[in-house]
Simulated assay, not measured.
Amino acid sequence: MSFDSTPVELGRIFAHLSGMILNEKDATSAASKLAWAAHQTVPSATGAGFSLLDEDGKRLSSASTDPTVEAIDALQYELGQGPCLSAWATGEPQRVDDTATETRWPDWIGAVSSMGIGSILSSPMIYRGRHVGALKVYAAEPHAFGETEVHLLGLLANAAATLLGTAQSIDTPVRLSKALTDALTTRDTIGLAAGVLMAQEHLNRDVARTRLLERARTSNRRVIDVASEILTDWEKQGESP
């Protein structure tokens, strides 16, 4: 898709999307439609995700195009770090050209790289100065996203923010700081669970975090729930990480 054809293609995609969302009161279904729209809008993406945030900075709804994207996206919010949270906080798109060499968000990026994700692009959704969510796309190959993809995802994010932003109270801005504060306890739980796996299965930290992601994905549960279960079993055994 070239820049010349962008308005036509996005107009077609978003006209169809708008009709579905405006008649859909279920936020989860709306999120799923936006995730698939992002995947379609950026042809080089192998997966996409979307998160809508409430007035406290917590996820109101989220969706992804496949289980791997869901797992690595959820881990961002549980660890309190990652390109989507950074896009949300700064209001600027965040691009990871190669997860193997990326130095930002070290706890998250190591697990993502081990899961076979090579590059990432995240665009904030901003409505009347409020950060209402984020759209993101992933690819297995490094350097999958350039300026064209940044432009395309940004256009869709802006349109989606306008559509969904009207459904949120204009008097309650999203606050990222509270979300990050709330994430600290979750981050510690995941870190302790990774430590247990490291000791029990003789793994390094990156592999242990990847194991947590894989368990969450295959059991269709949140990473924090899997981590809590590991810690509960460890306590029953009377061991320490």
Results as ranks from 00 to 15, higher is better:
Leu85Ala: 09
Gly91His: 05
Ala74Tyr: 00
Pro43Val: 02
Thr65Trp: 09
Asp66Gly: 09
Ala139Asp: 10
Pro124Cys: 08
Ala71Gln: 06
Thr46Met: 11
Asp54Leu: 06
Thr90Tyr: 02
Ala111Tyr: 01
Leu163Ser: 02
Thr103Arg: 10
Leu135Ala: 08
Asn158Gln: 13
Glu70Met: 09
Leu135Asp: 07
Val132Ala: 02
Ala37Gln: 06
Ala74Arg: 10
Thr148Asn: 06
Pro67His: 10
Leu152Trp: 15
Ala38His: 04
Phe145Arg: 01
Thr41Val: 14
Ser123Val: 11
Cys84Gln: 13
Ile170Gly: 02
Ser114Gly: 04
Leu155Val: 14
Gly133Leu: 03
Ser64Tyr: 12
Ser61Pro: 03
Cys84Gly: 11
Ala48Asp: 08
His131Tyr: 04
Ser51Trp: 05
Arg95Lys: 10
Gly110Ser: 11
Ile109Lys: 01
Trp88Ala: 06
Val96Gly: 00
Asp73His: 12
Arg128Gly: 01
Ala140Tyr: 05
Leu75Pro: 02
Leu163Lys: 00
Leu75Met: 15
Phe145Val: 00
Met125Cys: 13
Asp107Gln: 12
Pro67Trp: 12
Glu70Asp: 14
Val96Met: 11
Gln76Tyr: 07
Thr162Ala: 09
Ala134Trp: 01
Asp73Val: 13
Pro43Phe: 05
Ser62Asn: 08
Leu155Cys: 09
Gly80Glu: 13
Gly165Ile: 12
Asn158Pro: 00
Ile109Tyr: 01
Val69Pro: 00
Pro67Glu: 11
Arg95Val: 15
Ser119His: 06
Leu156Arg: 06
Ile126Gly: 01
Leu152Tyr: 10
Arg128Cys: 05
Leu135Glu: 04
Tyr138Glu: 06
Ile170Arg: 12
Val150Cys: 03
Ser123Gly: 00
Ala160Ser: 15
